[in-house]
Design a protein around this nucleic acid. Structure first.
Lengths: 214, 214
DNA sequence: AACTGTTTCAAACATACGTTTGACCACGCA
DNA sequence: TGCGTGGTCAAACGTATGTTTGAAACAGTT
């Protein structure tokens, strides 16, 4: 078994603990003891706890960002080659499954972290994510816009919100909600299955007819 | 201006701060100084910080729970009188708007709190919500089940998840995402509008055809 | 072997937290 | 007026946190 570097051991432990407990609820001592490294190693290698949180996200988002942009380029998507909404959702959702990870459940952990990033109002994290990954996100939004010309701006805006919510929340609360519903049989699903289940849901939701006011 | 009791002043301040910052990130000192009461008042009146968190939820969920159950009863909904999914969603979503609150944006604050409750893994809170409000939640799920006989159990389970996610996440992250998208014009919407926008989205999503595997 | 830069380590630091304490106040009733 | 009870208050308590320190260990180079 190859000896992991301290930096990677910290990132591995931190990523799991953050996903399980949240950022504020996870102390550096929990992380360093799980990683079997000295407490001071975090501040030595990363500088601060906040910087560690950002590093955890970078390790996921760097590759994901590249995969998503490459996908768009490969298909030549753009103003002159407008993809269907179904293709966009399928390909973007499936690129989530391609994120490399040092352990199984990497996708679930990552999605849970993304959910936490938006829900817990860690100001520094939000700022960091905006600055680093706004480009990728805007590309996705632009493709959605091009592929749904029939929607009003307001409808499209909010339906995109709802869609992001479905993804972030679902992935971020798989365990807890499964407990509530005591429905373990049906609740058990791997990321691949969930992606296949969520795409038609989102597709139908975004392209739904507007409600008759009543 | 009527002098609010200490208990209510604490609840008002806590509810806003929790919604803004999260539970762990909000200290009792922030709450008591915003409420203009003594620090010890929280432990005196509520017993602990965790108990205060639960009290904040009780103030919302008590009335909401009653409204939702009354609504079902008024319509005589049940096995022998199965409502349409559209009616269920409309009525349940609109009962959110009826929650009494001491300030405007009460609905948004409440929804953000609910989102936090699921995302932040506050064990005590989850336990409390399950015990107190499982009954209301199960009634909703049962109605959804009755009104969507065409869905497989697994599809229904996950689509319900996605739907809950849309609600919780959307309401809980209105500000932050609006900033990201720099789309303030379209992002501005009051709770009534959002409810009208989200019902058709959810309806279409839940009743969507299954995806052709590809 | 001696030197140099990097990494690890135990210990300490300062601070913020939730909670508890005991004195103090205000008010209603005898 | 005196007394008792429920509420308020400043202060302190113990603990956990993120961070810093300075010495020790290590690795590579000359």
């Amino acid at each position: 078994m190859p000896q992991l570097e301290t930096v990677d051991k910290i990132l591995d432990a931190a990523e799991l603990l953050f996903a399980e407990k949240g950022f504020s609820e996870t102390s550096l001592r929990m992380i360093t003891s799980k990683a079997n490294v000295n407490l001071a190693a975090v501040n030595y290698h990363f500088g601060s706890k906040n910087a560690l949180i950002q590093a955890v996200f970078s390790r996921f988002l760097g590759p994901l960002s590249k995969i998503m942009e490459d996908t768009s380029k490969e298909h030549g998507w753009g103003k002159d080659n407008i993809p269907s909404l179904e293709d966009i959702l399928k390909l973007y959702m499936h690129s989530l499954l391609k994120i490399p990870s040092s352990h199984e459940n990497g996708v679930a952990v990552f999605m849970r972290l993304m959910g936490l990033a938006y829900t817990q109002s860690q100001g520094h994290l939000r700022l960091y994510l905006e600055q680093e990954y706004a480009k990728t996100f805007r590309l996705f939004l632009e493709l959605v816009r091009l592929s749904t010309p029939e929607l009003s701006t307001k409808e499209r805006f909010w339906r995109t919100q709802f869609t992001l919510g479905s993804i972030a929340f679902t992935m971020s609360s798989i365990q807890p909600l499964a407990e509530i519903l005591e429905n373990s049989k049906d609740a058990k699903a791997n990321p691949e299955e969930i992606v296949d289940l969520i795409v038609p849901y989102m597709l139908a939701g975004i392209t739904a007819p507007a409600m008759d006011v009543n």
